[in-house]
């Protein structure tokens, strides 16, 4: 709050003061009061007005300066009512009371939405567990009844994949901790994920070269299995029909941290798309070409990695390869 703005804001009052003073002086003149007395009256009048308004300006300035800087500096602006000093003038009090009320109502609103989200998420989890039962039964039926077309199994696998996508999307968006970080052998997670995609990989006659997977990392086994499953899924989706599909998986120790390197020889990703592939709903040119992309897979993967404390990065050259590197924090990080 600047002095100049304050004066501008009080232009009307100042005009009234000036007019009153002129009227008083005219009256005094008319009653024949001497010039000294008129001067004293004018001086007292102006001084009083000055003192009152300086006082008023100061208390307002104190309040509104805090308000303005707080709004600028707070990254969570809705906390504003919490940082405000008490106002010692009427409209300031009204303002801060109103802010408090708004804040309270907002908090209630957010809490109720959070509760709704939570119950929705719980329902999704429940639903996923329920729908897995008929999927399992169908899976067994396909196996028990040799006359059933094996193509049905591939479709069942797709259904199961989509179900997992929903489950892990719900999990990755949830703020609560619902994973366990423990020592997990990488080869177990990889072979579980690869085993699920075996039929399709075999139909494509894919070559998988796995090396150095005989290490353990600190992660959640199920989440990691899903992450690797998504990478395999992308490899299958964005394969280069001209080449024999090849997947290389290996690990490397880098500054005491274990890195899982996953590479395929698929269509690759355009350079301009590469920085955005982990964004939600980003499909890029590959997605547009195949029409199979939802832009969710890698977004969920990134989200899960962030929550587990892993980092994931992608490198690619169009028409040559795509390589994902997942870095796991070293074991000490969790032990400490």
């Amino acid at each position: 709050m600047r002095f100049r703005d304050y004066i501008k804001d009080h232009a009307l009052i100042i005009t009234v003061y000036a007019a009153s003073l002129i009227v008083i002086e005219i009256f005094l003149k008319a009653f024949g009061t001497n010039v000294q007395a008129m001067g004293v009256v004018a001086a007292v009048f102006i001084l009083m007005a000055f003192v009152v308004h300086i006082y008023d300006l100061r208390r307002r300035k104190r309040f509104y300066d805090v308000l303005e800087t707080s709004v600028k500096e707070l990254d969570k602006k809705y906390l504003l009512p919490e940082v405000l000093d008490e106002a010692h003038f009427l409209d300031g009090k009204i303002l801060s009371d109103t802010l408090q009320d708004c804040g309270k109502s907002m908090t209630e609103n957010v809490t109720s939405e959070k509760r709704k989200m939570q119950s929705f998420r719980e329902y999704i989890e429940l639903w996923v567990h329920e729908i897995k039962l008929p999927v399992s039964a169908l899976n067994l039926m396909c196996h028990n009844n040799k006359e059933i077309d094996p193509k049905m199994k591939v479709q069942l696998k797709r259904i199961d994949d989509y179900i997992d996508n929903v489950l892990y999307y719900a999990r990755s968006e949830n703020a609560e901790k619902d994973y366990i970080i423990k020592e997990t052998p990488l080869n177990r997670a990889f072979s579980a994920a690869a085993g699920k995609n075996r039929e399709e990989l075999q139909l494509l006659n894919a070559t998988i070269k796995a090396s150095n997977l005989d290490v353990s990392v600190m992660t959640d086994g199920k989440w990691l299995e899903f992450i690797i499953g998504q990478l395999l899924d992308n490899t299958i989706k964005y394969r280069d029909e001209e080449k024999a599909l090849e997947i290389r998986v290996s690990t490397k120790k880098e500054n005491g941290k274990t890195e899982l390197i996953y590479e395929d020889n698929g269509t690759g990703i355009l350079k301009e798309d590469l920085p955005r592939i982990f964004e939600k709903s980003f499909t890029g040119s590959n997605g547009r070409e195949t029409q199979k992309s939802t832009g969710m897979g890698l977004y969920i993967v990134k989200n899960l990695c962030d929550r587990l404390g892993h980092t994931i990065r992608a490198e690619s050259e169009k028409g040559k390869y795509t390589r994902f590197t997942i870095t796991f924090a070293d074991n000490d990080y969790y032990c400490r």
């Binding site: 028990n144 994973y179 366990i180 199920k222």
Partner: peptide, 29 residues
């Protein structure tokens, strides 16, 4: 189990389960 959390697996194994398989399982496995 149709639950897909590591938590259940850890709990089951600690209660003395010999193995833990999530649905839908591969019949051969």
């Amino acid at each position: 189990t149709s639950r897909t959390g590591d938590m259940d697996e850890v709990l089951s194994i600690s209660y003395g389960a010999d193995d833990y398989i999530t649905k839908p399982y591969n019949p051969t496995i």
